[in-house]
Design a protein around this nucleic acid. Structure first.
Length: 340
DNA sequence: AAGATGACTTTCTGTCCTTT
DNA sequence: AAAGGACAGAAAGTCATCTT
């Protein structure tokens, strides 16, 4: 049994297919009598128009592409939840690509969106582009030719709508909180410095130490890359070493924190008595272990929703100036007051 | 004779412009 | 208000022509 098409509906309703098309899309003139008849026939035949054919004709699909770098990061789960709510509300279709922080997969994902003739794109780039990669990116984007909203990570030299956070200020405040709690030996689990968010978070940390006259000790800078395993290994090395340890850490992201905690617990250290921390972004699941901890909180769902909002606005007004939205974040201090 | 190759046509299903 | 028909891009189908 072949699929029911607009022609079948038209034939059965005794009208032309263009009339059926107008009913489907609620456009143009259709007498209410004809409309009712066509709707009845569509209902009876359980007819759904082919999105494939519609895309073929319109030279555009109703899909929104979402390209994320870390499917294992709950941050992007929250983003997805915000985006998909708006997708539903606006009767769009979502295509999701995960790049695992590999730039080559950025390109593959963009090619997918190009092949799909996506209507819009929300994009968190996998990393820092070199000249050649930047050129390739520009070529692809030019071909895709649809509105793009950057999310959380910017691309140097590329201007478009975007939703970001104030990484510098949040990191400054997080580090400052540790200082105010009485810590003077404060380390950082550094993020991926090829990403602007990694650099900004490091800069905020450094600036806070500087502001309070504390020395920046390279030995306290753990060169992580936003990933749990790397941080775990580095922390184990550090905890095994003879060196004097920091009494507190600012941790650049939630995944690093998992590695950090694994190492700390493995060495039977107590949080926050032995070692305190403030982490950028919520760490999923910690509430379950009744572990109070401090973190930089941001409304991530809202970031996803806002990105969609920018896209929808761009559809309406293709030529308006680009918009850069900073979603505010605040410090959640939940640990012991003494230590933080 | 059998197989490979290339040129051309048809098919798929909605959309949209023109005509009645 | 409704009908008719061109059209979109890729794949499959058709047929003629060329190569072994």
């Amino acid at each position: 049994m072949s699929e029911i098409t607009i022609n079948d509906i038209a034939k059965e309703a005794g009208v032309g297919k263009s009339t059926v098309s107008r009913v489907i899309n609620g456009s143009g003139y259709v007498s209410s009598e004809t409309r009712k008849k066509i709707e009845k026939v569509m209902e009876e035949n359980n007819y759904f128009p082919s999105a494939v054919a519609r895309s073929l004709s319109k030279q555009e699909s109703d899909t929104i592409g979402l390209i994320i770098p870390e499917a294992n990061n709950p941050f992007f789960g929250e983003i997805l939840s915000g985006v998909s709510q708006s997708i539903d509300e606006n009767d769009l279709t979502l295509i999701l690509c995960n790049t695992a922080n590999e730039i080559e997969k950025d390109f593959r994902s963009l090619q997918v969106m190009l092949r799909q003739r996506s209507k819009g794109l929300i994009f968190t780039p996998a990393g820092n582009y070199n000249k050649k990669q930047f050129k390739k990116l520009n070529n692809l984007i030019e071909k895709i030719n649809c509105p793009i909203v950057l999310l959380d990570r910017s691309i140097e030299g590329f201007t478009t709508d975007g939703v970001y956070s104030d990484n510098f200020t949040s990191s400054y405040l997080a580090t400052e909180a540790l200082i105010k709690a009485g810590h003077s030996r404060i380390g950082i689990i550094q993020g991926d410095l090829s990403l602007s968010i990694g650099r900004e978070r490091l800069a905020g940390y450094k600036k806070a130490l500087e502001a309070y006259g504390l020395e920046i000790n390279d030995h306290y800078i753990v060169p992580g890359n936003f990933d749990a395993d790397t941080t775990y290994n580095l922390m184990i090395d550090l905890l095994n070493s003879e060196a004097e340890l920091p009494t507190a850490f600012f941790i650049s992201n939630n995944l690093s924190c998992i590695g950090f905690l694994r190492a700390v617990f493995e060495k039977n250290l107590k949080i926050p008595e032995d070692i305190a921390f403030v982490v950028f972004d919520k760490v999923a699941g910690q509430e379950l272990f009744n572990m109070k901890y401090s973190y930089v909180e941001r409304d991530v769902r809202k970031m996803g929703k806002k990105a969609m909002e920018l896209l929808l606005k761009r559809f309406e007004h293709p030529d308006k100036p680009y918009e850069k939205v900073i979603i505010d974040s605040k410090l959640k201090l939940l640990g012991s007051e003494l230590y933080i």
